[in-house]
């Protein structure tokens, strides 16, 4: 067990380091002088070289890339990700001040998405009407095909501007969270529902289900007592995909609903080529991703006795 744990932790650390290094290489290969971007384009011609040198030194851009890499990596290990070139704020502060609303949004959206996905999978497997099952099974592909911004704009038009039930902007309280959460949950629920529906239907044909039915169990009883647990396990394996969807979706959802958050910070930093912040976001995302996967790796053996036995025998 400890070897398994060690291997998984080592992998998580590697993922974060690789994300840091790759993002460093990519960002430093960009044909952009981060210092030039600090000045108004119309003032660049009249800004003196001395002023530019002064500010390059302040942000540490005056050293060779390889020296910067090792210095910044060392700082990153000590928890210092540098300064935002655009705002002058420490990167940790810039990310830290917006991470909470995004985490709240993402966690709520994930819960809602899982509920939607289970609802679809349960109904699609339980119904005896072929057409209803087909209709329900066509929902997951549809949710991923409709662009998030379109879902958001339609919801805001109907529920904010026409009905006035929810505010169109802001992050004050539960009421303002409803529309963004639903908007983000819809595309995220798609892959989960697809996977659950498939595995529900597969499990329903398994011999143990036949035995239960033969003993007189109803379809609902079998689904909720027997199939549910066995069919849900594979959904954990797409945690990475779900995580990616949540992050990508938050960029759009936060923009439409004018909410502060990591998504908006990402969009802004990419737009302004704020290299330290972009790299900080990559690293923080990699850490969250690695932690999530590590948690799944550690929980999985507890849920699946077969895997537990295999690890124990190693």
């Amino acid at each position: 067990m400890s070897r398994y744990l060690l291997a998984k932790v080592a992998r998580a650390v590697f993922v974060v380091w690789a994300a840091y290094t790759l993002s460093f290489i990519l960002l430093y290969l960009l044909p952009v002088n981060a210092i030039d971007l600090l000045f108004d384009p119309t003032d660049l011609a009249t800004t003196t070289a001395a002023a530019k040198r002064q500010i390059a030194a302040y942000y540490g851009f005056n050293k060779p890339a390889i020296v910067q890499y090792f210095e910044r990596l060392g700082d990153a290990f000590r928890g210092d990700l540098g300064l935002s070139v655009q705002s002058g704020k420490p990167v940790w502060y810039a990310i830290g001040s917006v991470i909470e609303p995004t985490l709240v949004l993402a966690v709520c959206a994930l819960v809602v998405a899982v509920c939607i996905a289970f609802g679809i999978a349960f109904l699609a497997s339980r119904t005896r009407f072929r057409w209803l099952a087909n209709l329900l099974q066509s929902i997951p592909p549809a949710t991923v095909s409709v662009p998030v911004f379109l879902i958001g704009l339609v919801l805001i038009q109907v529920f904010s501007f026409n009905l006035g039930w929810f505010p169109p902007t802001g992050d004050s309280g539960l009421v303002s969270l409803v529309l963004p959460v639903v908007t983000l949950a819809i595309p995220v629920s798609g892959p989960i529902a697809q996977l659950l529906t498939d595995s529900f239907l597969r499990e329903l044909e398994a011999p143990y289900v036949m035995t239960a039915v033969a003993k007189g169990a109803t379809r609902s009883w079998v689904l909720s007592r027997e199939v549910f647990r066995n069919a849900s396990l594979p959904a954990l394996t797409i945690a990475g995909v779900i995580f990616g969807n949540l992050l990508a979706g938050s960029v759009i959802v936060e923009t439409i609903y004018s909410r502060p958050g990591m998504g908006r910070l990402t969009e802004l930093s990419v737009g302004t080529k704020d290299i330290p912040v972009i790299q900080g976001i990559v690293v923080v995302s990699a850490i969250l991703f690695a932690l999530g996967n590590l948690a799944v790796d550690l929980i999985y053996p507890l849920l699946d006795p077969r895997l537990k036995a295999r690890i124990a025998s190693q």
Partner: peptide, 10 residues
Amino acid sequence: IPEASVRTGS
């Protein structure tokens, strides 16, 4: 409010 239609709608 980054989105134009939301500014106008609001």
